[in-house]
């Protein structure tokens, strides 16, 4: 029997093949998080037994969890992919963006690094693992989302996108963002990872870690988060529900140490993944829309 996971998988594979066929130079944006891991897994299926017909691009903020970088390198090697790394530090060093300081947030700065990498390599399509259930602005976005020559998204002028007739033609300098996981929810992602027995960074599973409570989140004490004078370091059993910059991504209290336990936990959750764990979405009511308009993921 064909269930909803089979249909979501098939739809994603269809989109991957369609964009590769219609565009000249696609690239897959890969952060090492669960969604981009699923995307890479689907891309490998879509073109098997051939190797991936596009490179994989990591926008490196320099504020990563080491376990995620380790996973990134393993995954890229396992799939025989070609990895490109574009570094936010380089953008800072070149004076293209202001230096927020060693502990400062670099999330929004990624947009400049990403757009520069797209221009430098001449990419006309970038696959991303964004899902519509993550945020109210993402809920509005097409599966093939057009970006003008400045990388901007215009939510008032999106191309009609009927049936599954995705059309990916752009003029020189413009590009597309393609989101094969648009219709997946967080629970779909975890059920699929469980079904496919996929590997993931260890930080998604429950483990003991030193954390501090800051802005309503548990932040992992480490090179990117130093406890402040008024903060107490606690050692707790936690896991990460999303993976972003180490200084903006909160851990959740959880003893889910297997995929089955995580699926169970997510199916009962009453707080959204970004609400629970992401400082970068809390800047304003339309934080995601504002960043997307500028060319963010």
């Amino acid at each position: 029997m064909t269930d909803h996971l089979d249909l979501l998988e098939s739809h994603a594979i269809f989109i991957l093949r369609e964009v590769v066929a219609e565009c000249e130079r696609p690239v897959l944006l890969f952060s090492g998080g669960k969604d981009s891991a699923v995307l890479l897994h689907l891309a490998a299926k879509a073109f098997a037994p051939q190797s991936l017909p596009f490179p994989v691009l990591h926008i490196d903020t320099g504020q990563n969890f080491p376990e995620v970088i380790e996973f990134r390198d393993d995954a890229v090697e396992r799939h025989g992919a070609r990895l490109l790394v574009a570094s936010v530090q380089d953008s800072i060093d070149q004076g293209k963006v202001a230096d927020p300081g060693p502990m400062g947030p670099r999330n929004r700065l990624q947009t400049v690094t990403l757009l520069d990498a797209i221009t430098e390599h001449g990419f006309d399509a970038a696959f991303g693992g964004a899902r519509r259930d993550e945020d109210k602005a993402r809920a509005k976005e097409r599966i093939l989302s057009f970006r003008d020559a400045f990388g901007q998204w215009d939510p008032r002028q999106q191309r009609p996108e009927l049936w599954q007739l995705y059309q990916g033609k752009v003029n020189a300098g413009e590009h597309l963002r393609a989101f094969p996981l648009s219709d997946w929810t967080e629970l779909d992602i975890w059920q699929y990872i469980e079904r496919e027995e996929m590997a993931l960074p260890r930080i998604y599973f429950a483990h003991e870690r030193d954390v501090v409570r800051r802005d309503g989140m548990y932040l992992a004490v480490g090179p990117h988060v130093t406890p402040r004078a008024d903060e107490t370091v606690e050692r707790l059993v936690v896991r990460f529900r999303t993976v972003g910059d180490a200084n903006l991504t909160g851990a959740v209290l959880s003893d889910a140490s297997t995929l089955a336990a995580i699926v169970d936990e997510i199916s009962r959750a009453n707080v959204s993944e970004r609400g629970a764990t992401r400082g970068d979405d809390k800047f304003s009511e339309t934080a995601m829309e504002d960043r997307k308009r500028e060319g963010y993921f």
Binding site: R132, D133, K140, P155, Q158, D183
Partner: peptide
């Protein structure tokens, strides 16, 4: 202005 996609289960 544009379609919003929401998911329920």
């Amino acid at each position: 202005i544009d379609v919003a996609y929401r998911y329920a289960s």
